[in-house]
């Protein structure tokens, strides 16, 4: 079973993501800011297969979480998708530079999100 961490401070989006991904046997955890995300990652010893994160959040932004995850030397790599409504070109580029695997801009098409999640999980097997 894949474990997915959703980091999102919006009220509605996590509900939507949860619903979209519920059919597949994914285990979803949801945190609302960068600090909780980093805590959660430490607690579980980075025990996730995929992270879906927003960019602008309190405490630590999505990029920081992203770089923390991608710069980890040991352990298996974790895929990261950025889902954000803030997406000027510079930010998208910065995200990819830091190693993001995918970038989705809100509003998302549910099927697209699902496919991208599946594909990334396959790739990171």
């Amino acid at each position: 079973m894949y474990r997915i961490l959703v980091i999102e401070d919006d009220e509605v989006m996590p509900k939507i993501i949860e619903r979209i991904l519920h059919k597949e046997a994914y285990h979803l955890d949801h945190v609302v800011n960068g600090k909780e995300a980093l805590q959660k990652l430490e607690e579980t010893n980075y025990g996730y297969d995929l992270i879906i994160t927003d960019i602008m959040m309190p405490y630590a932004n999505g990029f920081e979480v992203l770089s923390r995850v991608k710069n980890r030397k040991e352990g298996k790599p974790i895929a990261v998708i950025i889902v954000s409504n803030a997406g000027n070109e510079d930010m998208i580029l910065e995200g990819f530079k830091l190693g993001a695997d995918d970038f989705l801009k809100k509003p998302v098409i549910p099927g697209e999100l699902l496919i991208r999640v599946k594909r990334l999980l396959m790739r990171y097997q």
Binding site: E11, K106, I109
Partner: peptide, 9 residues
């Protein structure tokens, strides 16, 4: 409206 800000299609 909030939902529509988050999903399309």
């Amino acid at each position: 409206t909030m939902y529509r800000d988050n999903v399309q299609g």
